[in-house]
Amino acid sequence: MPDFSPILTIAARDAREALRDRFLLIATLALAAAAITSLATGSLALHTDVATYMAAKDTLIALGKSASAIASPEFWPLKLLRGTVEQLEIMGAVIALVAGYRAAVSERGRQTLALILTRPLRRWQVLAAKLLGGFFLAATAAGAVTIAAAILLELTSGVGLMLSDLGRLTVGWAAAVLYLSGIYTVGFALSLWLRSASAGLVYAFALWMLMVLVAPQIGDTMDPDNQVAGGVFAALSVPKAEQDRIKAGFATYETIRNDIEISSPTKHFERFTFAVLGIKDTYTGKPLGPILTEKSGDALFLILFAFGLGAIVLLVPINPDRLTKEN
């Protein structure tokens, strides 16, 4: 049985340093601010929709017509979290990346790494402690954002959150922890392995851009429906059945598009959370169990992304001679 006490000792020291470091606090606050901003503006836009509906309804009633002629907007509070989830996807990822870089820099080049590595403990234990630190950071930051969002939803939506909503939020939080931990590991590993830590940070940023922004963006813009404002089928007034027939003719194109999208862990996180929280219309109001079954592929990808990368970091040997000699 491996000895975990050195891991906890190092992780506890890291946690103490993180608490004294303003970076973590400021970064978490910035992430929460961005997430809450998206939630607030989404909520504001929804209030507009409701007001528009009410006005239209009043007009119809005043004209002596039935209000059932227009569909009433359905209200699902968790749907408002679209912007929040997207901020976690993008901003959260940047913060996780930088946190990983800082975890590497905090030891690299300082003689502290030499001091730790000359103690009777194994290299993987040092690395495991660092990864554990990242996992806790991700859990704390995503937790803070989730709690803030839940409070804001409860206060502003006018519809109380139900117990099942809290369950969905918890599942969403767990997915966020996996996603952010994986990205933290990328930042940590590159900053540790590369020639210099700052070069590692730059490479990590470049990778972040490809993984978080470019791959989903390519997939998104290759969607023919996104090429024309309002959607190509809507512009051509083609009925749904005919749309499906036409789309079937572009199966290969669609497969390539989908493959590019799913090469990105971001897309898996998004698909999973959008389904669990009912943000995507197809899943709105559906019970959680079947959604989890349907989205188990995305969940598995996230688990493999976080733990697989962690395993790689533990297995790749580090060069203590080089890492302790820098200035």
Partner: peptide, 17 residues
């Protein structure tokens, strides 16, 4: 990613399309 959400409720992924 943040300012477009404030000025026009543009979500972050929409901001990159």
């Amino acid at each position: 990613f943040v300012l477009p959400a404030i000025t026009g409720n543009v979500t972050p992924t929409a901001a990159i399309n």
